[in-house]
Design a protein around this nucleic acid. Sequence first.
RNA 1: GGUCCGGUAGCUUAGCUGGAUAAAGCGUCGGCCUUCUAAGCCGAAUAUCGUAGGUUCGAGUCCUACCCGGACUGCCA
Length: 597
Amino acid sequence: STVTDYLAQQIRAALASYPGAPDDFDAAALDPEFQTPNNPEHGDLASNVALKLAKPLRSNPRQIAQHLADALNESADPKRIAAVEVAGPGFLNFRFATAYLYDGVAEILAQGDAYGRAERTGKTAIVEYVSANPTGPLTVGHGRNAVLGDTIANLLDWTGYDVTREYYFNDAGRQMRVLAQSVMARYEALVHPDVQTKTLEGGLVVPESFPEDGYQGDYIQTIAESVRAEHGDDALDRDDAEAFFKAAAVSAIFATIEQTMQRLGIPVGEGGMQYFNEHSLYENGAVWDTVDRLREKGLVYDKDGAVWFATGKLGKVVTNDQGVTEPKDEVLVKSSGEPTYRLPDIPYHLTKLDRGFDKVVDVFGADHIATYPDVVSGVKALGGDVDKIDVLIYQFVTLIRDGQEVKMSTRKATYVTLDELMDEVDEVVREKSEIELTSSAGPDVVRFFFLMLSPNTHLNFDLNQATEASRKNPVFKIQYAHARISSILRKAKEEGLGYEVETVDWTFLGHPSEITLAKLIPSLPSEIASAAEHMAPHHLIEYLRDVASALSAFYRDCRILGEPDEVAQPRLALADATRLVLRNGLTILGISAPERM
RNA sequence: GGUCCGGUAGCUUAGCUGGAUAAAGCGUCGGCCUUCUAAGCCGAAUAUCGUAGGUUCGAGUCCUACCCGGACUGCCA
């Protein structure tokens, strides 16, 4: 970026005196665009500035480009810019001085583990993710949310934000009562083995008291057993039995969820994930206060026994059969008195803004698409600065087993948990590995799988493919590149080969594979910045794959061990810098960087 | 009905502010282990970028219309 700033300034200077320029042309206001060309013949950096200026300057683009090339070849610092050329319809191609290329590499080595980490900006961000209600273990369906949210939190951290991670949940309401009753029924069967039973559709035998749409998972049985072990056989006789069982279930389930998050690399406990209970917004009156405040602004009215939010007044429209657009209002509180999901989310987001966060990120599944714009307009109507809110909507995950879609339901216990998924991947990879694994492959593969595609893309998680093909999973290719370099570094150390960051002499490097690598690895910081800005972790993955691939070419073409020191040292330094880029990139993704594989 | 996402090689996808020859993995075919890890590398074949218009010096990328697939939604949350 400093190079582009420098070149931009050079270009502005050169255009200040362009012959025949119209009077209203202001070269000082120019902000030229730069890009890295795909084709290496097009130099190290290119600009389309001459093409863009053809019209305002009323001149031929090639002629403008030539003027700029001549001027810059004259004035630009030869320590940085070796040559400026005109190509094609009027592109400017810049070639960097060789020594300048390796400045970026030296910078990586100087910063080490911190390379890619921006200065603290003093700004704060809150990322809300996972947010699964405590009715059962985390499933494959929750995985994409958890991994995307965590990685975005990491990206924001690395771009200089102080990041708070928050888990928003609701442990009140009907589904939680059903959960409690499910545990109670299983407990009843334990303490009264002769209780009257019934057989559910799936074949599960439960007491008559088991609710119609009760939760059938094994974990319910486990919770019932542990309640019995801790509290004996009389728990059903308590006055507060339902609340008691609910609390037991919630705490047991949250313990499981935390274990899974931890295994996935999501920080829990002090400084990690913090929790926000939706119910607190009812207790402190924030929910009904929201309705009142919106009503004062004339944005809430009653109709058909329900409370309506006049989103139509805030710009929401639908197109009817005749192709005419008309305003559309939404229900905030149903005629049953139960709020819709959009209501509590409004005060929740207001609290996030009130807590002073500069950036508020929500990671939502596609089911929120319909409601979140209403939440945002509610927040805005109540004076919240909605520009601070960024919503990442990701498409859902379909689980495929043996070519068949697995329909998942937490109630019917037809789900695959994230733990099961990680176990399965772990096991198969271990089987197929010739060498014993030092780290756990399950979390690495699962995280990678959830991150490798654009969040906008529907994800088919094929269990057979994810496990059977796991040796070919691209995550291993990136990790393998890291392990290879680590191996070279180990051997170099044994042989007494090393380098001093300050005194590396790069002039012996010039092989195309060295140059490609040296040009690629210093863009880690800008890749991180771009991935963070677009909330697109897959951009970082694509980049790391490119780095791994460039490393392969370098590994093939440029030996280190056994070469004369003046060549071996700068090559070792280049390899070490590549290792740091891979490692720091993987760290952001929450994927391990193994030293052996 | 409405909202949103997708439609790029046989399959799964990438393509970030429009740029110079559309990229990767899997699959197929062929080649490479006496030298730093073959979980690797090299080469070959495979693409009317859903369709039709438009904007532009330039469109996979922007605009409009339409077609196909998917998700969500319709005070049942």
